[in-house]
């Protein structure tokens, strides 16, 4: 069993390191200092941790204003409230105004399990992906989280980072170089393609092992940028493997699966299976139980891929 990590730790370490080098970096939070893991940041840079209290609309506007003043704000809060509560501010003040604001949606997906659908963030990818100018990044592990935060700091423009709190193994080696809009091919294969992001990437890799045992060589893509999507990688997968399974800790309406399908259906139609939360509010259960319940596991991906392999082109 490989070691598991909370990506928020990588987020916080990286942000502190960057802040030590660049005075323009500030953090903005909605009372979420602990849940954004920014306690140490606040100790080291007390003036640069701006806590606006429980007020997400103001938080996003403040972020846009800080950017207007030449700073690089990392606006951080629990993903469901950061996005849903302040969606119009994200659209107008950040995306349409095209300000250099980094939105960090913490504990995304169903990580807050038993707290229920109010605290789940399974719509954020769809909402943010629908807004022009936005870049939407869903890191899969601490290695990618670190690099995504670094790239966010050094790339001008609006960005949304979807940071999970669920324990994940490292799926990228030290040579990995994250690039916005570029999928990482974590496993070669030409029989079928598994495309995932966030916490589902490790599950997709495990599913590929199960498939290999059945003689099916699955390609695995980590599509950590949900917008702009790596169309080339999707089209290559469609052409070369003839079938695609997507998996995301998100509703199937408008997220990663939809993004992939938009490219596939208009360019190179191949059969797909889209795994995610099927348009329902989750029942009561822990995060890991809910992932099992919705078949968002290696076994779930494996079964969908087996079924697809029967019908694929």
């Amino acid at each position: 069993m490989s070691e598991l990590y909370d990506c928020r730790d990588s987020f916080e370490d990286t942000l502190r390191e960057l802040a030590a080098q660049d005075k323009r970096i500030v953090a903005v939070v909605n009372d979420s200092v602990g849940s954004s893991k920014l306690t140490q940041f606040g100790k080291e840079f007390p003036n640069r941790l701006i806590n606006v209290g429980i007020a997400e609309q103001n938080m996003i506007g403040v972020g846009a204003g800080l950017a207007n003043g030449g700073l690089i704000p990392f606006v951080s809060g629990a993903a469901p409230f950061l996005t849903g509560r302040a969606l119009e501010q994200i659209k107008a003040d950040v995306a349409y105004s095209n300000t250099n604001v980094k939105l960090c949606g913490m504990s995304s997906g169903m990580a807050y399990g038993e707290l229920g659908p109010t605290h789940h963030s399974i719509e954020d990818m769809a909402w943010l992906r629908a807004i022009a100018n936005m870049t939407v990044i869903v890191p899969a592990d601490p290695v990618e989280t670190r690099q995504a935060v670094e790239v966010a700091a050094s790339t001008i423009g609006p960005m949304f980072l979807r940071i999970s709190r669920l324990p994940v193994p490292v799926v990228h080696d030290d040579n990995y170089r994250f690039e916005i809009g570029k999928a990482a091919r974590l496993r070669d294969g030409n029989d079928i393609t598994l495309i995932a992001n966030g916490v589902l990437v490790a599950q997709a890799l495990e599913a590929a092992e199960l498939l290999a045992a059945r003689g099916i060589q699955a390609r695995v893509l980590n599509m950590s940028t949900a917008r702009p999507l790596d169309k080339e990688a999707v089209l290559a997968a469609a052409s070369e493997t003839g079938g695609i399974v997507t998996a995301e800790e998100h509703t199937i309406f408008g997220g990663l699966g939809s993004a992939v399908a938009e490219v596939v259906v208009t360019n190179k139609p191949v059969p797909m299976r889209i795994l995610g939360v099927p348009g329902v509010f989750a029942p009561t259960g822990s995060a890991s139980w809910l992932l099992q319940y919705f078949h968002l596991t290696a076994q779930g991906i494996y079964e969908a891929a087996l079924e697809l392999a029967e019908v694929k082109v």
């Binding site: 506007g61 204003g65 207007n68 003043g69």
Partner: peptide
């Protein structure tokens, strides 16, 4: 006003 608050903080 929220954006103005951020700008004033930046100043």
């Amino acid at each position: 006003l929220p954006v103005a608050v951020g700008s004033a903080l930046a100043s």
